[in-house]
Design a protein around this nucleic acid. Sequence first.
DNA 1: TTGAAAGCGCTAACAT
DNA 2: ATGTTAGCGCTTTCAA
Lengths: 351, 351
Amino acid sequence: MAKTSSADGRRRRITREDVAQLAGVSKTTVSFVLNETTGQTISAETRQRVLDAVAKLDYRPNRAAQGLRTGRTATIGFLTQDIDFGAFGAATLVGAQQAADGHHYHLLVMNAPGEPLRVEAAINDLIDHPIDALVVAVAGTRRVRLPAVVTSVPTVLVNCFVAGNALPAVLPDEVKGGRDATQVLLDQGHRQIAYLTGLSREWATVARLKGFREALTGAGVDPRQQRILEGNFHVDSGYALAKQILQGKWRPTALMCGNDRMAIGAYIAILEAGLRVPSDISVMGYDGQESSAEVHPGLSTVRLPYYEMGHWATQKVLTEDVRLLPPRTYVSCPLVLRGSVAGPARPPARG
Amino acid sequence: MAKTSSADGRRRRITREDVAQLAGVSKTTVSFVLNETTGQTISAETRQRVLDAVAKLDYRPNRAAQGLRTGRTATIGFLTQDIDFGAFGAATLVGAQQAADGHHYHLLVMNAPGEPLRVEAAINDLIDHPIDALVVAVAGTRRVRLPAVVTSVPTVLVNCFVAGNALPAVLPDEVKGGRDATQVLLDQGHRQIAYLTGLSREWATVARLKGFREALTGAGVDPRQQRILEGNFHVDSGYALAKQILQGKWRPTALMCGNDRMAIGAYIAILEAGLRVPSDISVMGYDGQESSAEVHPGLSTVRLPYYEMGHWATQKVLTEDVRLLPPRTYVSCPLVLRGSVAGPARPPARG
DNA sequence: TTGAAAGCGCTAACAT
DNA sequence: ATGTTAGCGCTTTCAA
C-alpha cells in the first residue's frame, strides 16, 4: 500500500505529508524522527506513532527532494569509455558500487566511447543531474583529456591520468606485476625466458617490461640474453609469436605473455608443436581473466586489480578531500599461481 | 566560469537566478527561453540576451530540481544481479545506455548479487532516487522473484521473467539459435554430431537442445542417433567431454558446444588428440564471446543479443505503456560463421 | 511580451 | 516536546 491510487492506474507516491497526517503530527516531527535529528526531543510515544505510520504506508523519502534541500544528492557519477572491454568495466563498476553502497551512495553510470566531445557531454550530463562526486575509469591505462568542468566536482581517476596530474589517479602497479611474474619463473629455475609482449606503445607493456628486466637483473641474468617479441594482446598474436619462437633454435623454457589471451594462443601453439605445459615449457599470463582459471592446465597470471581500483577511487572520493590525495596511487597486482608454471625440464644450457 | 567562488574553494552552482540577473529579466523568462515553452512569446532581443547570459555563465539546469517540479527525473534504474558475468552485464548496459541516451535519460545502475533481500533493498533504493522506469537484467536466463514494489514503476525484464508473466520480458530466442547452429552443420553435410551441452537444468540448455532436435528432425536425421553429453559451461568441461568422445568408437564429424568456453576446451582436446579443426572435426560454439573471434581457427558461434535486449527493454520502457507489452518478446541470436565449421572429411559412415 | 507566485518533497533554523 | 516557516532550483498558471 505504498501508493494512493490515481488516474493512470499507477499510484501517487507517499509523501511526508501523508505520514504526518496518519500519525497526527506535523511534517517536521516526521523528519525529526526519520533523520534522528540530534538536539531534538521527541517523546517515545510520538516517535512510535510516526514509525508506525511510516511502516503502514511504506513511506520512503524522495532522495531528489532531500538532495535539493541539503545540496547532497547521494549520487556519484561513474564515467567510463570502455565499459564493455573485457572484465574491466564490470569489475571496476562492482568495486565502485560496493564502496558506494557502504556510504549509501548510488552510481549514475555513463559510457562515453570515443571522442572528447562525447566525454564532455557525458560529464556535463552527470554534473547536471547533479552528482556529488565523479569517478572516471578507462580500460587500457592511458592519459585522458577531461573538460575543465570536472573541477566543479570532486573527481578521482581509475586506470588513467590527466596532464599535469591535476586529478588524483589510482593505477595498477604494473612494474611490480611484471617483476613478480618474472621472479616466479626465476625462482623455478628458468633462465631462458621469452617475453611475448602486448602492444609496445601501451603504458602497461612498457611498465611490465621494465619489471621483467628488473627481476632478471636482480637475479644476475642478462635481459639481453632473453627474447622479447612484440604482439598485440590478441589470442592470435600469442599463437603466432609462440609458434615462431618454438620453431627457432633458441628454445626458452618459459614464456611470459602480454596478457592471458596471448597466453591462451601460446597454449595452442605449444600443443600443436607436440609439447606440454608446463613440463616442456612454462607459461605466465597477465590480467587475471576469468578464462585463465579454466584452461588446462590453469594459467598462472597476474591479476589486474580493477575491483580494488574502483573501490579505492569511490571510497576516497567520498571520504577524503581529493585535493589532498597523492597524484598517483599504485595498487598491487596479485600473483595468481596455477599449473602452467613448473621448473624447466632440461638443464638450462645454451643453444 | 560556471561557478561563483565559495568558502571551500569549489564554486557555487550557477542557478537560473544568476542568469536572470545577468540578462536583466525574470527567472520565468529564462525558463521560457530555455524550455522553448509553447504559447509564449519572447521577443527575439530578450531571447538573445538570455541565451548570451546562459552561455557566458555556462548555466546548466539542475535536473533534480526539474524532476521535483515535473515529476519526471529523466533517470532509469538498471538493476542486475550478475553485472560482472562475462560479457553479459556490460553489453546489456551499453544497449540500455544507448537507448537511454536517445531520450536524454540517464542510467542509475545497481548490482545486487544473491539474495532476494538485497534485491528488494536495491529496488527500493532505486525507486527512492526516484527513477521514472526500471530495467532488470540477469545473466543466465531464469525466473526471478521481485518485490511487489516494482509495480510502482514501469518495468521491463531482460533475460529473465517473473511468475505469471506479470512483467514484460525480452529473452533470447535460444530455440531458434540452437536450430540455426545445427542447420549450419547439417547444411555442410554433417550427420554425426555430438552435442556437448551446458548444465541441463538451465533454461538456455533446454531451449538450445530443443532447437538441435528440431533441426535434425527437419533434415530427416534421427536425434537419437546423435550423442548428447552434459557439461557445465566451463572450458574444462568442454575439454573433458570432447576428450571422452574422441576416445570412443562413435566418432562425430562435428561438435555442438554448450557455449564458446566449452568450445575452446574442445579445441584443446582435439589438438591433443592430434586432430585439426575443421578438417577433422567441425566445432560450433554459442554465446558470441569476444574470444571466439580470436582462437584459431575462428570459432563459429551464435551470438547472444545482450546489447539488443538491453536496448529493446530501455527503449520500450521509455516509449510504451509497459502494461500493453506482450509478456515475452524473443530476440533472435545471430549466427556468426567463422573457420571452425567445414564439411566432414570422411564420408558419413557408421562407426 | 513579461513577471509574480504557487508548489514539487524535503530539511532545519527558529518559534512556541 | 512539537510546530511554523523559509527556502533548495525549477515549471507553470495566472495576472499584468
